[in-house]
């Protein structure tokens, strides 16, 4: 076990743990956001750069700071390491810059996007983003394509986190999903469209942090915050059959995997459970799913929800544009 100090909190972790994993052990606000790293996907991480942190002291042996900000998801901790996340203005500024970079080509079509309400990018930009964009360029555009019968790809919304690429690579036996082209022209694609017919291909929807990959059996049927997430299970020969059923009254609108507090799937589920079993009688409903997240869907059900006694006027906060000095 080695000792590491993150934002003045010291914790003992096993050797080989990354900084991000160590912060998740502590939990709370000091956990850096992760858009591309996924604990269950080998090789993921390091790409989005939102989890950058400052290493103020590399280790007990060598207390020099690291020269650049490092990606906490791919930097292993060392004994005596001192890390600054929210306590470093440099980190917060860099994160703000990264959010700006991620958003300049994002269409911001949240009002018509199925991911709205459970979108990592939405949460991230709400927390760290800037109100106005400084970019006047045209956003890059791609045609919307179908990947198989049940998945829709909106490449415009993609932030190239590569999670779906790793999923397709590691969960399915035949790699048909990858990245084409380079630089800002890079796009997620299957080489031949409509070829993802693997039983676990639907998981790319759940791992996608934005609305680039969405469920065609659920598209435009409801906003997620109108639905109630329920833990449900069924006997399935292919997967564990443990899912979250998103219900409205007695009707199941969609099935997803069970996600933990960081939006990661506990278990990957098969396409049959996800796309085909939409009948109430297919499932044993266990009870409400607890989602400890700050996002909009939590607002309906959550324990600590306190009703505001006085409704604050929103003017000045968002309504009025501040005059420039």
């Amino acid at each position: 076990m080695i000792k590491v100090t993150i934002d003045n909190i010291t914790i003992e972790v096993a050797e080989g743990t990354t900084i991000l994993e160590a912060t998740r052990k502590i939990g709370g606000k000091i956990v850096p956001p992760a858009m591309c790293w996924y604990s269950k996907l080998k090789g993921s991480g390091g790409k989005c750069r939102t989890c950058l942190v400052r290493v103020a002291e590399s280790s007990a042996k060598d207390p020099r700071p690291m020269p650049k900000l490092v990606a906490s998801c791919s930097t292993p901790v060392q004994d005596g390491m001192v890390v600054q996340n929210t306590t470093s203005q440099e980190v917060l500024d860099a994160r703000k810059a990264i959010v700006e970079f991620l958003l300049i080509n994002h269409p911001l079509d949240c009002p018509v996007c199925d991911q709205a309400g459970e979108c990592d990018l939405q949460d991230l930009s709400f927390e760290h983003g800037v109100v106005e964009t400084r970019s006047e360029e045209d956003r890059r555009e791609f045609p919307v394509i179908d990947i198989g019968d049940s998945i829709k790809l909106h490449m415009n919304r993609c932030i190239l986190c590569y999670r779906c690429v790793f999923t397709a690579d590691q969960l399915t036996d035949k790699r048909v999903h990858g990245v084409l082209y380079r630089g800002d022209a890079a796009e997620i694609s299957t080489y031949i469209q409509n070829v993802i017919d693997n039983d676990f291909s639907g998981n790319v929807i759940d791992v996608c942090p934005v609305g680039a990959l969405t469920d065609r059996t659920f598209r435009f049927r409801s906003r997620v915050w109108f639905l109630e997430p329920m833990d449900a299970h069924r006997e399935c020969r292919k997967c564990s059959g443990k899912v979250t059923a998103w219900m409205f009254g007695n009707e199941i609108y969609r099935i997803t995997g069970r996600k933990d507090q960081y939006g990661e799937l506990e278990e990957f589920i098969c396409n049959e459970c996800r796309f085909e079993k939409k009948d109430r009688n297919d499932w044993v409903i266990e009870g409400p799913r607890k989602i400890k997240r700050q996002s909009v869907i939590s607002a309906n059900h959550y324990e600590k929800l306190i009703k505001p006694s006085v409704i604050q006027p929103i003017e000045g906060k968002m309504g009025k544009k501040e005059e420039k000095t």
């Binding site: 990264i98 190239l160 380079r182």
Partner: peptide, 9 residues
């Protein structure tokens, strides 16, 4: 290469 966001964007 388009892998990480600051450089790509």
């Amino acid at each position: 290469c388009g892998q990480c966001s600051p450089c790509r964007e």
